[in-house]
Simulated scan of single mutants.
Amino acid sequence: MSKTISEQHVKKIAQMIRNWPVEHALNWDTICIGSLEILGWDTPPTRQALDKKTAIKVAYKAKKEQLKSDKHKLGGISRPRSMLDAMKKITRLQNDNDLLKAELSKMAELANRLIYNASMAGLSRERLMAPLPTVKEPKIKT
Results as ranks from 00 to 15, higher is better:
Glu103Phe: 13
Leu36Ser: 06
Lys101Cys: 13
Gln15Phe: 14
Ser124Gly: 12
Asn112Lys: 00
Leu110Ala: 02
Gln48His: 05
Asp42Trp: 00
Val22Phe: 14
Asn117Phe: 04
Thr43Tyr: 07
Ile33His: 14
Met1Glu: 13
Asn97Pro: 09
Lys12Val: 03
Arg79Trp: 15
Lys141Arg: 03
Trp28Asn: 13
Leu67Ile: 14
Ser2Gln: 08
Glu65Ile: 15
Tyr116Pro: 02
Leu99His: 10
Leu99Arg: 04
Val10Ser: 04
Lys63Arg: 06
Lys106Met: 06
Met107Ile: 10
Leu99Phe: 02
Val10Arg: 05
Ser124Val: 03
Leu67Arg: 03
Met107Ala: 10
Leu110Phe: 09
Ile90Pro: 05
Ala121His: 11
Lys68Glu: 10
Val58Ile: 15
Gly122Pro: 12
Pro131Ala: 05
Pro80Leu: 13
His24Gln: 05
Gln15Ser: 03
Arg92His: 03
Pro44Ala: 10
Arg81Val: 11
His9Cys: 01
Glu137Leu: 06
Ile31Ser: 05
Val58Asn: 09
Gly40Cys: 03
Thr46Cys: 10
Asp29Met: 07
Ser119Ile: 09
Lys12Glu: 02
Leu74Glu: 07
Met107Arg: 02
Ala102Cys: 13
Ala86Asn: 07
Asn117Tyr: 15
Ala118Ile: 02
Leu93Trp: 02
Lys3Leu: 15
Ala49Pro: 11
Glu109Met: 08
Glu65Ala: 12
Gln66Arg: 08
Asn27Ser: 15
Met83Glu: 07
Arg18Thr: 06
Ser69Thr: 13
Ala86Glu: 09
Arg113Ser: 05
Leu93Asp: 08
Pro21Ile: 02
Trp41Phe: 06
Pro21Asn: 01
